[in-house]
Design a protein around this nucleic acid. Structure first.
Lengths: 157, 157
DNA sequence: TATTGTTATACTCTATAACTATA
DNA sequence: TATAGTTATAGAGTATAACAATA
């Protein structure tokens, strides 16, 4: 059973000195990530879909016949943990596992018609979410933000 | 027992179309956050300290006598989950729980001498980590990045 | 009545190891 | 031998509800 994650209670704040935390990129990125995820989970609540499921659905939609291992490497989700995730998408009738011709070990994943409809709906919800959370920055600022984050990510290896 | 989180295996990547994911702020922020956290956990491995513990230590250091509820609200960690976290810091001899004069329900947290030494060491490790992960961006870019992330976070309520 | 810290509990996400069936 | 998917399992992190002590 999924739960709607509520923000931690932000009651009358006693003035707390955060020290050097606000100067740490890890702290600021983490707080932003949590806030964004809470927002998108709320946005996708009508379909009860979580970010991980959305990203897998997106990959299957963009790469019909893709193998679980390829998804694993592309998204940084371990193969073992994808089993239940894909299983849930299959249980919902959104994704099909079909054996790949020429390699009977592998499963080629495809969206069903229902899955394509769900993904279309989710993309609309995601777009609305995106507009909301980026409403106070310009598209140029968003582009710069993404570029800097990718550089930070590349530098964090 | 803590484990050293390894990056998900990034083997010979079959070309996968990520669809619209790279255009989603949530996706880019999340991937960056995971990479940064893996990096800082490695950086703090000598003291076997995780990001949550570091942030609590920082707050106690900057706010001697702070109550657990104040930490909870400042960091977005629920009171209930702070119990074990602070307990571990106390077990390590880094933090003391003392009853607050005038309110015997509360615990005022303070660093011990050992805790101050540990925090000093951690701040050095954190600074090294910070230099590494931001080495490919300018200080102006870092400032802009933080500003934009805070705006995204504020917009995600 | 409300608040502080706490306990108990459960769910999600992530991690490793080992298995099976194929290659 | 190696790979794809799977199972079993364990550890973080995070969520809720309810309790005792105190305000």
């Amino acid at each position: 059973m999924p739960r709607s994650p509520k923000a931690a209670p932000q009651a009358s704040p006693p003035i707390v000195d955060l020290g050097e935390l606000p100067g740490h990129i890890g702290y600021v990125v983490r707080r932003a990530q949590v806030a964004i995820f809470q927002h998108i989970i709320r946005a996708m609540a009508p379909l009860n879909v979580r970010p991980g499921q959305f990203s897998v659905l997106t990959l299957v939609g963009a790469n019909p016949g893709i193998r679980q291992t390829a998804i694993s490497e592309a998204l940084g989700i371990r193969r073992a943990n994808l089993v239940a995730l894909v299983g849930e998408l299959e249980r919902r009738g959104w994704v099909q596992r079909a054996t790949v011709v020429g390699d009977r070990r592998a499963h080629g994943l495809r969206l069903t018609a229902k899955g394509r409809a769900a993904l279309a709906r989710l993309k609309t919800l995601a777009a609305g979410h995106e507009r909301r959370v980026t409403r106070t920055i310009t598209s140029r600022e968003k582009r710069d933000l993404m570029r800097l984050l990718r550089r930070i990510r590349d530098a964090s290896t």
